[in-house]
């Protein structure tokens, strides 16, 4: 019997590793980076084809744009703060006050990520709208002539919707981080006489900080980019950058203006994305349970 040895030809000439990365990169270049670069070209050259910063100047200086930027930032920051708070509290209960079905709740929250964002905005019109569940109930109970709750068609409606939608994105890394805290650590702290609040402050919060920062910066990115919720709530005076781009391009066919705004929006998003990557890299993403 002979050995089933593999051909011992010294290392057959293999393709260098870099070559294999080329096909997907080309696809991405053709379908994503090339179109993206054309936005910049349109913003800088307009329809006339000559380089000018005038489009930029005009758009960036306009009150419409500044208002949109302002709303975008206020909504993103407030929604992110809300997500962090709500996500931290809910994760805390799921992870550290275990109850039967806690895992199921975790799964449900995961599933919520998969649902379209505008579902919440649509639901909120039924709940908090002027003739929604809450207002009708209050009017009936208190015999009020007018709906008492009126925040949905302001930026608060958008913020509340976004908190609902994006809290799971904070909870995922948080739950992963919490699962790495050994139960014995908390038991020892308790046995040493630390109160729950003290344990949260001195053990849980420091351990969760990387997850909070990573989840928070992801939230910030997603809320800056959010479109569906703002569109569905449709408040007249709540215009964010993505909505502005949509209005300019689709309603007014003003591509150059849309492209200028898109350049700013993309730059803002990429900045936030770098922040997110830095946060994840700094705290070693694997530990924070982030991809």
């Amino acid at each position: 019997m002979t050995d089933l040895s593999v051909a011992s030809s010294p290392a057959s000439p293999r393709l260098p590793n870099d070559v294999w990365a080329a096909p997907p990169l080309l696809v991405l270049a053709a379908l994503f980076f090339y179109p993206l670069s054309l936005i910049l070209r349109q913003a800088l050259f307009g329809d006339e084809g000559a380089f000018t910063l005038s489009h930029f100047g005009e758009v960036v200086g306009s009150p419409l744009f500044l208002d949109g930027l302002h709303h975008t930032l206020v909504i993103a920051v407030s929604a992110t703060a809300g997500c962090l708070l709500l996500g931290f509290i809910l994760s805390l209960v799921i992870a550290f006050v275990p109850f039967p079905g806690a895992r199921l709740v975790g799964r449900l929250i995961d599933t919520f990520i998969a649902l379209p964002t505008f579902l919440v905005a649509l639901a909120f019109t039924f709940i908090y709208g002027s003739s929604g569940l809450l207002n009708e109930s209050l009017m009936r109970l208190l015999h009020l002539p007018l709906p008492p709750i009126d925040f949905l068609y302001s930026q608060w409606g958008v913020i509340l919707s976004e908190v609902t939608v994006y809290t799971p994105f904070v909870m995922r890394p948080l739950l992963a981080a919490f699962s790495l805290i050994e139960a014995s650590q908390i038991e020892v702290a308790s046995s040493l006489g630390a109160s729950p609040l003290r344990i949260i402050g001195q053990i849980i919060l420091p351990a969760a900080l990387p997850a909070l920062i990573a989840g928070g910066s992801l939230c910030l990115l997603l809320t800056v980019n959010e479109f569906g919720i703002v569109l569905f709530i449709g408040a007249k005076d709540v215009i964010t950058l993505p909505l502005l781009i949509y209005d300019k391009a689709i309603q007014e066919f003003d591509y150059t203006t849309a492209c200028v705004i898109a350049v700013v929006n993309v730059a803002l998003s990429l900045g936030l994305y770098s922040l997110y990557r830095l946060a994840v890299a700094h705290f070693a993403g694997s530990r924070a349970g982030l991809v």
Binding site: M1, T2, L4, S5, A7
Partner: peptide, 15 residues
Amino acid sequence: ATAGEARSALSTAAA
């Protein structure tokens, strides 16, 4: 010797 002995094609190197 085993059943596979006849299958010299399997072995790329000489025994």
